[in-house]
């Protein structure tokens, strides 16, 4: 991970995201500018429908912004840079999606190891790193279960382990505590905070101010606009 604290891990510059809505267009993001520094844990708070998930998708390069620029580690990546985005998601960006996106035919361990194998690690090394990541989220004993044999909360922790594994420098988390009870949610958000302390950069979107309070900085998103600092 990049150890140079203070440098920018990711940045949105005047990013807008418009969706067609009947005859009109709706702005899920409206000229949003946001920087996350290396070593920083930023929480984006907002109610449902405020554009939080879209923000994560744009930063992960899975949805192209309608306008504005997205920069990862100082490099501007546009919608046409598909290969660069895929490379960034393999090497630099870990994402916990709200819908988790676990592969149902793979075990927890295989789900976590997969991005490492795609990144060129051999199977044995990937499995070893995945096992350690699963142990970090308290799932060592369930590593060989498939997602459909795990509870919602356990599946969520697998998704977090998959995003944390491999020391990627930027971690994006979309409501990572959604299916967890309060103790498990605290465990997960502490892992995110620890990752930031260890020199990663973390951006978490959440509707829950109790989760957001673990962040170094909290910003608020309402109706697609950043409305300032919540705390």
């Amino acid at each position: 991970m990049d150890q140079s604290k203070g440098t920018v891990a990711c940045e949105l510059r005047q990013v807008s995201m418009h969706y067609p809505d009947g005859d009109e267009t709706r702005a899920a993001l409206d000229a949003v500018s946001l920087r996350v520094a290396v070593g920083e844990f930023v929480a984006v708070m907002g109610p449902s429908g405020s554009g939080k998930s879209t923000l994560v998708h744009v930063l992960a390069g899975v949805e192209p912004a309608t306008a504005g620029e997205v920069a990862i580690r100082g490099e501007v990546l546009g919608p046409q840079d598909r290969r660069a985005w895929i490379r960034a998601r393999r090497k630099d960006i870990g994402v916990v999606y709200q819908r988790l996106n676990l592969l149902p035919t793979l075990s927890a361990l295989e789900n976590v190891a997969l991005p490492l194998e795609l990144d060129g690690f051999n199977r044995r090394a990937a499995a070893s790193m995945a096992a350690a990541a699963l142990a970090d989220v308290g799932l060592a004993s369930l590593a060989h279960r498939r997602p459909d044999h795990l509870s919602g909360g356990q599946q969520q922790r697998v998704a977090v382990a998959r995003a944390l594994v491999g020391e990627r420098s930027l971690l994006l988390a979309d409501e990572p505590s959604g299916a967890l009870d309060s103790a498990a949610a605290e465990d997960v958000v502490r892992l995110l905070a620890d990752r930031a302390r260890a020199g990663g950069a973390v951006l978490m979107v959440t509707h829950d101010s109790r989760m957001a309070s673990w962040a170094d900085r909290i910003v608020e998103l309402r109706d697609g606009r950043l409305t300032g600092v919540a705390a």
Binding site: R190, A193, S209, R210, A212, S213, W214, A215, I218, A230, A231
Partner: peptide, 17 residues
């Protein structure tokens, strides 16, 4: 009301950690 409560909780989080 929320802002100051969150700010206080952020400070408590530092103590917790």
């Amino acid at each position: 009301q929320r802002g100051p409560v969150v700010a206080r909780l952020q400070a408590v989080r530092q103590v917790q950690r």
